[in-house]
Simulated scan of single mutants.
Amino acid sequence: MKKLLGLLLLVSILALAACSSEESGTEGGSSKAAETDAVPKDLAFGSATVGGFWYTLSAGMADKMAPIYPDSSVTIVEGGSVSNLLGLGQGTFALGFANGQTVPEALNGLNEFEEKIENVSTVATLYPNVFHMVVREDSDIQSLEDLKGKKVSPGIAGYSGELAFKDMLSAVDMSYDDLGGVEYIGTADGADLLRDGHIDAIVGMVAAPLSTFQELDTTMGIRLLPLEDEVVTALNEKNEGYLPYTIKGGTYSNITEDINTVAGYTVLLVNDDLMGEEAVYDLTKMLFENQEHWKTLSSTMNDFSPEYSVENNVGNLHPGAERYYKEVGAME
Rank of each mutant, 00 (worst) to 15 (best):
F213P: 13
E228G: 15
V172N: 04
S175K: 04
I199H: 02
A171G: 02
V231M: 10
E215F: 15
A188E: 09
G180A: 02
P209S: 14
A188I: 03
F213A: 15
A201N: 05
L210W: 00
I202H: 05
V232W: 06
A208G: 09
D189Q: 11
P226D: 08
I199T: 05
M220T: 14
G241M: 03
L193N: 12
G204F: 01
L210P: 03
D177T: 14
R223H: 10
E183L: 01
T187W: 00
D178A: 06
V172R: 03
G190A: 01
T219F: 11
D189H: 11
T218S: 15
G241F: 04
E230D: 15
G186C: 01
D200H: 06
Y184I: 01
E228Y: 06
S170N: 12
P226E: 08
K238W: 11
G186W: 00
V206P: 09
L179T: 14
D177H: 13
N236P: 07
L169C: 06
G204K: 06
P226C: 08
L193H: 09
D173K: 11
M174A: 06
V232P: 13
L216F: 12
I199Y: 00
G180T: 02
Q214A: 15
A188M: 05
G197L: 00
S211C: 13
G204L: 05
D167P: 03
A207K: 04
G241Q: 05
A191F: 07
D189G: 15
V182A: 04
L235F: 06
P226V: 09
H198Q: 15
Q214T: 15
D178R: 05
N239A: 10
F213M: 15
A191N: 07
I199M: 01
E215I: 14
L169T: 01
D229H: 14
L193R: 08
V232C: 10
P226S: 11
N236M: 08
V203H: 02
A171S: 10
Q214M: 15
I202S: 10
A201W: 00
T233Y: 11
V206W: 09
A208M: 07
L179N: 05
K166S: 07
Y176D: 10
I185F: 00
M174E: 02
L235A: 10
G181F: 00
K238N: 12
D173Y: 07
G186H: 04
A191Q: 06
Y242P: 13
L169K: 03
F165P: 03
D200V: 05
E240F: 12
D189W: 00
A201E: 04
T212I: 09
T246W: 10
F165N: 00
Q214R: 13
V172Y: 02
A207N: 07
H198M: 09
A164G: 13
Y184W: 01
T233S: 14
R223L: 11
D200N: 04
G186L: 00
M220Q: 14
L243R: 13
L169G: 03
L225F: 01
A234P: 09
L225N: 07
Y184C: 02
